[in-house]
Design a protein around this nucleic acid. Sequence first.
DNA 1: CTCCCACCCTGGTGGC
DNA 2: TGCCACCAGGGTGGGA
Length: 226
Amino acid sequence: MPELPEVETIRRDLAKKLVGKKVSKVKVAKKSKPAQPSPAVFIKNLSGKKITGINRRGKLLIFELSNNEFLLGHLKMTGQLIYKEPQGKIIGGGHPYPKPDVGAPNIYTRITINFHDGSNLFFNDQRLFGYMRVVDEAEKEKVLSRFGIEPLTKNFKLEDFHKIFKNRKVAVKAVLLDQPKIAGLGNIYVDEACFLAQIKPNKPANKLTKAQREKLFKAINKIIKE
DNA sequence: CTCCCACCCTGGTGGC
DNA sequence: TGCCACCAGGGTGGGA
């Protein structure tokens, strides 16, 4: 599954290509769960909208639309976002299988967004856990309010990191994966960070010493910036 | 508030 | 060798 830095890479790459483009047509595969709340409503909500910017919170991609609405997109474990120009140039990323250049669209393509200039954005997902959804400002804020500290920014501070472990009897790993506390760390990165900091992932979070928390904090920073 | 668990889904794995 | 039960995995939501 894509981890945080890869989602950020996808965001940056797509922003270069998609900002300013207008959606001409939206296609959704039959019984497509990722198109929410339903394929018909999703198509109606997105058709004709212009993309004015792309942001990210945790592993959630937020496409700003021209009418102050937002297209939220989450790849979960097996999602891919593939952008393709008429000439065939392909960028994007996410889950490595199937390879982005092995046909786009392919059998896992759940949503196809056509732009007025002939380029396309494909949302591929094997397991159908990912989703795309158009929301208004209020709904977007509601969704974003559930996210915790954002790693990869200067808001990720050691002092806040210490607080997160207070009164937590569950495993260190569970705390690090807790999105309302720290947004965007995944299973693999959490394991790596624990390994690097020489802390057992299943150790109760409130049993860590201050030195261990600091070591863990540094390990996380090292890993997400690699 | 924290904790815990079921759920979403499909491909890969391991046991027989 | 073939079959199938089982499980991974990010995130959410509800109940205790």
